[in-house]
Write a protein that binds this DNA or RNA. Structure first.
Lengths: 218, 218, 218, 218
DNA sequence: TATGAATGAGAGTTCATTCAT
DNA sequence: AATGAATGAACTCTCATTCAT
C-alpha cells in the first residue's frame, strides 16, 4: 500500500469520478483499473480494499471541510460574517470538489458500521461548529434565539442539497448562488429584519441549472 | 405478475424497509424473500425484477407527493398559506413515509437511464409546482422577486435533507419542526420583514434528533 | 443448503476423492463442480463454503470412528479382545473409507481454529477410549503397566500411518494386515510373553504394498 | 540464486517455521518475505520458486535422515542395537528438527509429480535400510520372521506419528520416550519373549504431551 | 402460487512470479 | 542484492434470474 505516489492519486481521482457517476456499488474494481490502465489486481498495491478507497475519499472530503470551517470559527469575524463565510465555504467546497463531496454525501451509508461511526463523529463535529457560530450570534443579539440544532440542520440541509443540482456550466456563477444562499438563509435567522430593500442578489437570473437531474426538488 | 394482492404489499413493505436500512445494492432478493417468508424464486411471481421493485417504490413515493402538492397548488389559499402548506406537506410526507422517501431520495440514481428520465420528469414537475406557488406570491407582492429556481432549490433542499436526520422518536414533534421550517424559510423569501417579534416556534427545544446519523450537516 | 439429497452425496464424494488426490488447497471449487457436472456457483446450494465441505467430511469420518469404538469399549469382551477389536476397527475404518480418512488425517490442520478445536476434542475422546481399554487390561493384569498416553500414541500412530501406504490392490488382504498389527502391537504391551511360538500371521508374504508412495517410512 | 549465504539460511528457517505453523499452501511468499525483512520480489534472488523452497526443505530433511541411518546400518552393532539405534535416531531427528520434519511428513504431497518421485525414491531407500536391519536380525535369530515390509511400516508408522504429538516442553524427556518406543516395538518383533520383567521405561509418567493436537490418535 | 435446483456472469481479492531500475 | 510496480491467472463466493415441477 503506497500513499503518496502518482498512481495513487490517479486511482483516487478515477474512483471519485466513477463513484460519482455510477455509484459506489455499481462501480467495479475492473472499472477503476481500466480507468487508470492497470490490471484490477494491481490496484491492491495501492489500496487494501474497495471500501478502503471509499473511506479514503470520504475522509479527505471531511478533512478539508472541517479544517476550513474551524479556521472560520476561530477567526475574529463578527458572527454574521462567520455565518456567511461558513455558508459560502460549504457551497464552494461542494462546487470545487463535486465528485468527492457527492461520494461523501451519497455513499457514506455504504461504509461498515465502524467506519460510519468515525464519519458520523466528524460530521457531528462539523455541525457543532456551525451551531457554535449561530449561538455566538444569538449571544450577541444578531440572531434570533431558535433551536440551534434545527437551525443548523435547516441551513446545512439547504447547502448540502447543492450537490444534487449544482452544475459547473450552469447560468449562474458560484458567487451569485452563494450570495443568494447567504441572503435567504440569513433573513431566516437574523434578529432584526433586513433594513436594506435594495435588489437582492440573484434576483434577475432564471435557472441555476439545467434541471435535468433526478432528484433535485422532490 | 400480480399487483393488488396482499403478498405484493408485503413484498413492497419489506423492500422499502430493507432498501432503507441496507441500501438498494446491499439488499439481495434473498433478503427480501426471507423477510416475506418466500423462496427468492417465488418473488418473480409478483415482480419482474429487482429494479422493478425500486421503480415501484419510487413511483409510488412520487405519485403521493405530487398529487397532494397539485391539490395545494390548485386550492384557493393565498400564496403564503399555499407555500406554508407545501412545506408542511413535504415534511409530513417524509416523516410518514420515511422508508419510501429515503429510498426515493437516496437510491434513485441506481435506476437505469430510462427509468431515471421518467423520475426526473416527475421531479421537475414537482419543482415547477413549488416555483409556481412562489411566483404567484411574487406577483401578489407577498414574496420578494428572486430567481424562482434558486428559491425552490433552497427551500426544497432544506426540506429534503429532513429524511437524513428525522427520527420519529426525537424530542420535537413533527408539528414543531414543520412550524420551524415554515417560519425560517418564509422569512427568507417574504417581501416585508416579519412584523411579529414574538417567540418563534421551536425556539426552546434542544435537539431535533439524536444526531447520530452519518450525513446530516457536513 | 440441502443435506440429504443425492447431489449433496455426489458433491461430498467428489470432494473426498479430490481432496485425497490433490489435497484440500490444491482442489478448486471448479474441480468439484466439474466432477459433479454443475456450475461452481451452484455448489453453494448445498454447502456454504469450501471449508464447510472439509468440515462435513472430517466430522463424518470422526463420527463413524468414534461411535464404533464406543461400542467396542462398552462391550463385555475381555480387554485383550477389546484392544484387538479397536486395532482392527481402526485399520478397517481407514481401508474402507480411505478417502475420508485421508482427508481427515492429512487436512485437518487446514481448518479454522474454531473448527480445529472441535475436531481436537473429538480426537481426544477417541484417544481416551483407547487408553481406557488399555487401562482396563492393566487393571486385570493383562497388559503391562506403562504410561497409557504413550501406549495409545504408539499404537494409534502405527495404525494411523496405515492411510499413507494402504492400497486396496496390495498383495496382502486387510485381514492379514490387521492380524499382523494386532499380533505385533499386542506383544509390545501384554503382561506375559506370548507362549505360542507358532508362525505369526503375515510371516510369509513379501510386500504389503507397492511402496510407491512418498511418505511411507521416513 | 545463491545457496550458501546467510540470507538463504534465514529464508529456509522462516519457511520451515511458517510451513509448519500455517501449512505450505496457506503460507504466502509475502509471509516469508516479512519474516526475513525482504520484499517478496527479493526472495527470488535466493530461490527460484515457492516449490523450490519446499523441495529444499524436504531434501535436507531426508538427507540428514538417511545419512545417519546409513551409518547405523553400516556399523558393527548387533541387530538389536542397530534396530534400537534406528528408532532412537528417528525420534531424535523428529524432535530436533520438528519444523523440517513436519513439513516433510505433512506437505510432501504438495510437490509436483517429478519431485515427489525423487522424494519417494529416497523414502523407499530409508525403508529398505530399516528392513535390512530387521532382516539381519531375523537371519541371526534375534527377530521373528515376519513380513519385513509390514514390520517396517508398523515401526516407522508409530515413529513418524511422533511429529504430530511431540512437544519439546512435554512432561517426558525425549530419552524416556525413545526408551519406551524401543521397548514396546522391540517386544513386538523379537524372537524370544523378554526375559526381564523389570519395570519398563516410561511406566510411571502420565502424559507424554499436552494432547491438544488435532490429529493424534484417531 | 410456490418451489428450489440450476445458471452464468461477475464480483472482490490473492498470489507467485517477473523485471526495469 | 534489493526494490516495488505490475502482471495475469486463479480463487472463493454472490446474486439476479429462469424454469420444470
Amino acid at each position: 500500500m503506497v500513499s503518496g505516489s502518482n498512481k495513487m492519486a490517479e486511482i483516487m481521482a478515477a474512483a471519485i469520478q466513477l463513484f460519482k457517476d455510477k455509484g459506489y456499488h455499481a462501480t467495479s474494481m475492473q472499472d477503476i483499473a481500466d480507468a487508470v490502465g492497470l490490471q484490477k489486481g494491481s490496484l491492491y498495491h495501492y489500496i487494501s480494499s474497495k471500501e478502503d478507497l471509499l473511506i479514503l475519499i470520504i475522509r479527505e472530503a471531511l478533512a478539508q471541510y472541517i479544517s476550513n470551517l474551524e479556521e472560520i470559527a476561530r477567526s475574529n469575524l463578527p458572527p454574521r460574517d462567520k455565518f456567511a463565510e461558513a455558508v459560502r465555504h460549504h457551497l464552494k467546497g461542494i462546487a470545487t470538489n463535486l465528485g468527492m463531496l457527492t461520494v461523501f454525501l451519497r455513499e457514506a451509508h455504504a461504509l461498515t458500521p465502524e467506519q460510519r461511526a468515525i464519519v458520523d463523529r466528524e460530521t457531528r463535529r462539523y455541525n457543532e461548529l456551525v451551531e457554535g457560530i449561530y449561538q455566538e450570534g444569538v449571544a450577541q443579539g444578531v440572531f434570533r434565539p431558535l433551536n440551534p440544532k434545527l437551525v443548523c440542520r435547516t441551513v446545512l440541509g439547504a447547502c448540502n442539497w447543492f450537490y444534487r443540482w449544482y452544475r459547473p456550466d450552469g447560468p449562474l456563477s458560484l458567487e451569485e448562488m452563494a450570495d443568494f444562499f447567504v441572503d435567504v438563509l440569513f433573513r431566516g435567522i437574523e434578529a432584526r429584519p433586513a433594513a436594506s430593500e435594495t435588489a437582492p442578489p440573484g434576483s434577475g437570473g432564471q435557472s441555476a441549472a439545467g434541471g435535468s437531474d433526478t432528484s433535485a426538488g422532490a
